[in-house]
Design a protein around this nucleic acid. Structure first.
Length: 288
DNA sequence: CACTTGACCTGTCCGC
DNA sequence: TGCGGACAGGTCAAGT
């Protein structure tokens, strides 16, 4: 799925495209993707207008005038694509990137009163959308447990390091991917930031020095800031709210670059398995 | 509690 | 061209 930079890119796009729109209709395929009752949909979604689009970690929140919000997790292959009237215009520049929607991966469709629509597409069906009172969002398990936003101005290297003490006996990659340690890190930016800090992903947290944590903190923020600036990373499924791909992968240093030279020392990049995930390293820069 | 592994799904790619 | 297996940007619920 989209990691923090991709979800943030979607949030920014939606913020520009859907705030002020009024929901006219909602359809979904199975209850798994949208578990709310029809009566809740009628009462709190239909006829409500969108007043804000927020993000916490990898979760999007679309706030409605009814006092309810849509919480959305894209997981591995979720997309939120807005389709305006121009979408199907002949020769429209996005026509080649997003085909006519809905398609077979569409799980939820929101239609607005002006005829535009928002599609939640999700090839692997891991993602979800649910409706809940806005005021209750901070009380849900996830919000209680999730770690700090890594790009927040108030987040410090010291706090970053302290968050890991609980996970001293696992490897640094598993700990980075743990959303309760730090929010929003996923497979791409874990590999990219560990390469930046010259830390092998299998190193146990307890063996990482204060200096290494400080470097990792700065590398993680740098790589995520760059990714947000580039509109995120795209594999074949990720697109932003306008159906466009992000360009961070053009700047990736190790992720999916096995067999290519390390941009720092020229050693061939290797792919291994750490924390059950495909993991990319420079075997010279990142030693155990 | 912390840690690891398999499960959840569909689609694609790679080797035989 | 077909088929099996591995794998894909993420969590969860189980097990130890």
């Amino acid at each position: 799925m989209p990691e923090l930079p991709e979800v943030e890119t979607v949030r920014r796009g939606l913020s520009r495209l859907i705030i002020g729109k009024v929901v006219e209709r909602e359809t979904h395929d199975t209850p798994k993707g949208f578990p709310n009752s029809t009566s809740d949909v009628v009462e709190f979604l239909l006829g409500a207008s969108i007043i804000d689009v927020r993000r916490r970690a990898k979760v999007l929140m679309i706030d409605l005038s009814s006092g309810y919000s849509l919480l959305i997790h894209l997981k591995m292959t979720g997309q939120l694509v807005f389709v305006g009237e121009t979408r199907f215009g002949a020769g429209h520049p996005n026509d080649s990137l997003v085909n006519e929607l809905p398609d077979k991966s569409t799980r939820v469709t929101l239609t607005f009163t002006d005829g535009t629509a928002l599609f939640f597409n999700d090839q692997r069906k891991f993602g979800w959308v649910r409706l809940m009172p806005t005021i209750e969002i901070p009380n849900i398990d996830f919000m209680q447990k999730v770690g700090p936003e890594p790009l927040s101005d108030s987040f410090t290297a010291k706090e970053f390091m302290q968050r890991f003490t609980r996970r001293a006996k696992t490897n640094i990659k598993a700990a980075l991917l743990d959303q309760s340690v730090v929010a929003g890190v996923g497979n791409i930016y874990a590999d990219e930031s560990l390469w930046g800090a010259k830390i092998h992903p299998s190193r146990l947290v307890g063996t990482i020095t204060e200096q290494e944590f400080t470097t990792l903190f700065h590398e993680l923020r740098e790589v995520m800031n760059l990714a947000v600036e580039k509109g995120g990373s795209s594999n074949h499924t990720y697109v932003n709210a306008e159906g466009k791909k992000g360009s961070y992968m053009d700047f990736a240093r190790v992720f999916r670059r096995e067999g290519l030279p390390c941009p720092r020392c020229g050693t061939t990049i290797e792919k291994l398995r750490v924390a059950g995930r495909g993991t990319h390293i420079c075997p010279f820069c990142q030693q155990l």
